[in-house]
């Protein structure tokens, strides 16, 4: 009826075999990194175009629904002018699209002027991690477009994350709010060094913790937190957020601040990637 060839296999032995395969894969991930990366790359090459396609359909329906809503409102307001509106509908849709594009471009351009030192390229987000645990997303540019592991990713007017895995046509970006993300930063204008730690729980409450600030450092609410120059992975001076709360630690040596992020992670479509490699003694 099904799996005819394997009909006689006892599920127990199948479980045992597949468990061994799992363990082999696990060991291989550490021993033979390149081969495992090749397996991943192959599978994801099949999946990424599908995901991008679905994403485009999603965006398309989204824009269509938005258009419908605006049209409905207009109809209600101008019941007498229906015919005229119908004539202009296509124009409105076109202008809306152009306006949205203009706004995005203006945003990107404004950002461009803020950080003039670095070379950047734009990319689109097409998928996110399937579980609720990790804040990881995927962009449609890979090694073929000059991406590399450790490239800083920005969105809007602040730091969004870092590329942690890079494949031929796409890359995996870990957001700053991910639990495993730790960024060496400094608080302006006092230049106090600190560490920005990603934390899912805190992000859901709307802020992130900044730890290891010296007790005597002058930190005020509203101060800007930027990446520090001693970080070996992040370029210096990228905005992360603004201080919204400060508290002393129980050890009486350091204090912890809470920051509001500049990047809105609930709506990320286009990101900028810094294509300059950070110079460090590890490279």
């Amino acid at each position: 009826m099904k799996f005819d060839k394997r009909k006689d296999i006892n599920p127990k032995y199948l479980l045992l075999t597949l468990t061994i395969i799992c363990i082999l894969f696990f060991i291989m991930s550490f021993v033979a990194r390149d081969q495992v990366a090749a397996i991943k790359n192959f599978t994801n090459k099949l999946m990424a175009p599908l995901q991008q396609g679905i994403n485009e359909i999603g965006l398309w329906t989204d824009s269509k629904i938005e258009n419908l809503n605006t049209i409905e409102e207009l109809n209600q307001e101008n019941a007498e002018l229906k015919e005229q509106i119908e004539a202009y509908q296509t124009d409105i849709a076109m202008y809306q699209n152009q306006l949205a594009e203009l706004e995005t471009l203006q945003e990107l351009y404004a950002l461009d002027e803020l950080y003039p030192d670095y070379n950047k390229t734009a990319a689109n987000v097409f998928a996110k991690d399937s579980s609720s645990w990790f804040s990881v997303f995927y962009i449609d540019k890979g090694t073929e477009d000059g991406m590399f592991v450790g490239a800083n990713v920005m969105c809007g007017d602040g730091l969004a994350g870092i590329i942690v895995e890079c494949y031929d046509e796409y890359s995996k970006v870990r957001a700053v709010i991910d639990d495993s993300s730790k960024i060496s930063a400094k608080i302006l204008p006092s230049n106090a060094l600190c560490t920005v730690e990603g934390n899912l729980n805190q992000y859901q409450e709307g802020c992130l913790a900044v730890t290891n600030i010296d007790k005597d450092a002058k930190v005020n609410i509203g101060d800007k937190v930027v990446t520090s120059n001693i970080s070996d992975r992040y370029h210096s001076g990228l905005t992360i957020g603004y201080v919204s709360d400060i508290s002393y630690d129980s050890n009486n040596l350091t204090k912890t601040a809470y920051i509001t992020l500049t990047v809105d992670f609930t709506n990320i479509e286009t990101v900028l990637i810094i294509t300059d490699e950070k110079f460090s003694i590890y490279n």
């Binding site: 995901q51 679905i54 987000v125 996110k128 991690d129 399937s130 992670f265 609930t266």
Partner: peptide, 14 residues
């Protein structure tokens, strides 16, 4: 797999 990584949580990273 594709639905889970794209449509659900559409552009909302967390």
């Amino acid at each position: 797999f594709i639905l889970q990584s794209t449509v659900f949580g559409f552009h909302n990273i967390s």
